[in-house]
Amino acid sequence: MPQIEAEYFDGDPGEGRRDRVRTRRIAGTRARAALTDVAPLIVGVVSGATLLLGAAAVGGAWASGEVPGRSFGEGPAESAAEAAQALGSWLIGFGFILFVTMGRRAYRDASARRTIGILWDVGTFWPRAAHPFAPPCYAERAVPDLTWRMCTWTGRTGGRLVISGHSQGSVLAAAAVWQLPADTRKRVALLTYGSPLERLYGRWFPAYFGPKALLELSSEVDCWRNLWRRTDPIGGPMLITAETDPAGDGCDDPTDVDRQALKDPVVYGRSERHPLPEPILGHSDYQAHPDFAKERAALLDRLTPAVPRQAQGSSGRSSA
């Protein structure tokens, strides 16, 4: 908690008074957001425990000569099989209850609906060839359409684009930019915020969104800036470092993608400049941060010389 207070009060006396409750609330939000980073470890531990329990059940049944679910003897192998079977039955029941509870909560709680919607977006991004039980893939329609629009606009006007994407929109934007021809890709700048590209997709699907793939994308687009918060449970930094790019090719510096973490809340407490308490936004409303407009303006200034004038009926921005 002292680190959080130091971020707000060091060098800025106008942040108001220190409040232990406010500090704990910010720290709690950051701690819950950080749980996303340990999700692979949790999944690995649960999967390993399930495998061991299943193996113990099969081994106990084989050693005792009994079919699981029927009578067991008194030996350690039989006891292990019985315990594994009982635990599996409880876990199945718990999973069903959890599924029903989340379904009912989605009708009453907007945040629960948002969470389920995010999971649905992730599941429907991949085509059915990757998962036979997946719902229809919207990316098969959205990515080619966005790619066609970027190619058509840049080809017809000779201008450049800043394509911005939030959350799952940043994944669609990156996938669309990857499909562009090389000459068109050099005239496109990316602005991503609250992006799960590295934090979720890069860790669960490293073959498609791993460090090398993200570095390649950064070096091929005109420029790329990524905004993130420590309170965001979904979005995070791209972590493209100089170690993965010894040549330093591409835009001014392809490793200079991540901006310093945005403050959330923007200000710590109430003061004369900010009479109302600022909310902790987490994954939402990145556009409300004052630094968002600065970063967007910097990208537009970089692209301004090649962008046609508004009088020609063209626009230099696009979003996903």
Rank of each mutant, 00 (worst) to 15 (best):
Gly169Trp: 00
Val257Asp: 03
Glu198Phe: 08
Trp153Gln: 11
Ile280Met: 02
Leu303Glu: 09
Thr101Phe: 13
Val58Leu: 14
Ala213Leu: 08
Ala176Met: 05
Asp264Tyr: 00
Gln312Thr: 15
Gly235Ile: 04
Ala55Glu: 04
Arg309Asn: 10
Ser111Gly: 09
Asp264Arg: 04
Ala57Gln: 13
Arg317Trp: 07
Arg160Ser: 14
Gly48Thr: 12
Ala83Leu: 11
Phe9Thr: 03
Pro68Phe: 01
Phe99Cys: 08
Ala34Thr: 08
Gln179Phe: 00
Pro144Trp: 00
Tyr138Gln: 02
Pro277Asp: 04
Gly75Trp: 00
His166Thr: 01
Gly236Tyr: 01
Arg25Ser: 08
Gly269Ala: 08
Met102Thr: 14
Thr50Asn: 10
Trp228His: 05
Glu74Thr: 13
Arg24Lys: 14
Ala297Asn: 07
Ala84Leu: 00
Thr115Ser: 14
Val307Glu: 10
Trp228Tyr: 09
Val221Asn: 00
Arg128Gln: 12
Glu140Val: 08
Thr152Pro: 05
Pro68Gly: 02
Lys294Gly: 07
Gly165Thr: 00
Phe94Tyr: 13
Thr231Trp: 03
Ile118Arg: 08
Ile280Ser: 02
Pro275Val: 04
Ala134Lys: 03
Val307Trp: 11
Thr157His: 08
Val100Arg: 08
Asp245Ile: 02
Ile116Gln: 14
Arg160Asp: 07
Pro237Leu: 02
Glu220Tyr: 03
Glu243Lys: 10
Leu215His: 08
Val100His: 04
Asp183Tyr: 10
Phe133Leu: 15
Pro211Val: 02
Arg22Ile: 05
Ala134Ser: 09
Leu200Ala: 09
Ala189Leu: 07
Gly93Thr: 05
Arg141Lys: 12
Pro265Leu: 02
Gln287Trp: 13
Asp109His: 11
